[in-house]
């Protein structure tokens, strides 16, 4: 009897792993196709796309597409710009949105409910639909810099950063998370005479690792993949991000090998970053998601 149930368990394990692997294949094959294709000359890539060879590193394999991609476009510059814009926005967004959420979750003040309702309503506005009014606005905004007051934000990093620092979804995530923190902690700190800011910094933030990670990932993905807005506001190459750079590869006769190489170049770092942080990512999304 024991022997049979042992076998049974073994069989079930095999079935389980088979199912897991099949699903994994479905989720990963397009990305495998991308990376494998980036190693092939365009002609071969297109011919191979018609068979299972598309997923195998066979034939004329080299890194030539990568060298060519660097020759065609300032890839390093685009990646730098994207990382800079994304990084600054994510950090600023975490600070601004968590502070706002703190005020919404723990502090009572005049106008709070109205402000929160309006902010949540903005979740419904797709960015594409306000892009043109925003462009008209951004082209006339003042900025105080080293050379005094200048007008118009085009061709800068700030025009790619500032409009995206505060958004409804990030604030919403923080508010939901904060509401589930034990309120007594805050009360106790107030009784002891701690300032609001001290409570925010010393009590709430240290407990907010998971939600900070979630908000950071979401913002990172949105910012790194920006396309429409940078096209409208960056006329100078020195400010262009990766998704605009992708357009450099869409010439009349498309060099698909180079396109795949560029796609791999801009995607693999994000994947690697993600894999590195995946435990924290999943744990953090897991612990915030529940409070819808």
């Amino acid at each position: 009897m024991a022997q049979i149930s042992q076998d049974n368990r073994g069989l079930r394990l095999v079935v389980r792993y088979t199912v897991l692997c099949l699903i994994a294949a479905i989720f990963s094959f397009p990305l495998i196709f991308m990376v494998i294709s980036s190693l092939k000359p365009s002609q071969q890539l297109l011919a191979d796309a018609h068979s299972f060879r598309a997923l195998l590193p066979v034939g004329d394999i080299s890194l030539n597409n990568y060298f060519d991609a660097f020759k065609r476009a300032p890839v390093a510059l685009f990646v730098f710009n994207s990382v800079l814009v994304t990084g600054v926005t994510v950090i600023a967004s975490l600070a601004v949105c968590s502070a706002a959420a703190f005020a919404f979750a723990f502090v009572k003040w005049k106008g709070r409910d109205l402000a929160l309702t309006v902010i949540l309503a903005t979740l419904i506005v797709p960015f594409e639909t306000i892009a043109i009014p925003l462009l008209l606005e951004a082209s006339k905004l003042p900025w105080i810099g080293l050379d005094g007051i200048t007008w118009g934000w085009l061709n800068s990093y700030r025009v790619q950063i500032v409009p995206f620092i505060a958004d409804g979804l990030t604030i919403y995530l923080f508010v939901q998370y904060f509401k589930d923190l034990p309120g007594e902690l805050i009360e106790a700190a107030r009784v002891e005479g701690a300032s609001w800011f001290a409570i925010y910094r010393r009590v709430v933030m240290p407990l907010s690792g998971p939600v900070l990670a979630t908000a950071a990932i979401l913002k990172f993905l949105v910012m790194y993949n920006q396309y429409l807005w940078p096209i409208m506001v960056t006329q100078e190459e020195q400010y262009r991000p990766v998704m605009v750079g992708l357009q450099y590869f869409f010439q009349l006769n498309r060099a698909w090998g180079e396109i795949m190489a560029y796609l791999s170049l801009i995607t693999v770092p994000v994947l690697a970053f993600y894999l590195y942080l995946q435990k924290a990512f999943i744990a953090s999304i897991a612990s915030t998601g529940v409070k819808g």
């Binding site: 082209s139 085009l154 409208m232 006329q235 190459e237 357009q247």
Partner: peptide, 19 residues
Amino acid sequence: SFPQAAYNDSVTAGALAGN
């Protein structure tokens, strides 16, 4: 220089912004 696929949009945006 602009990538061809984004050129017209860039000019329109530039014109709207007086640039």
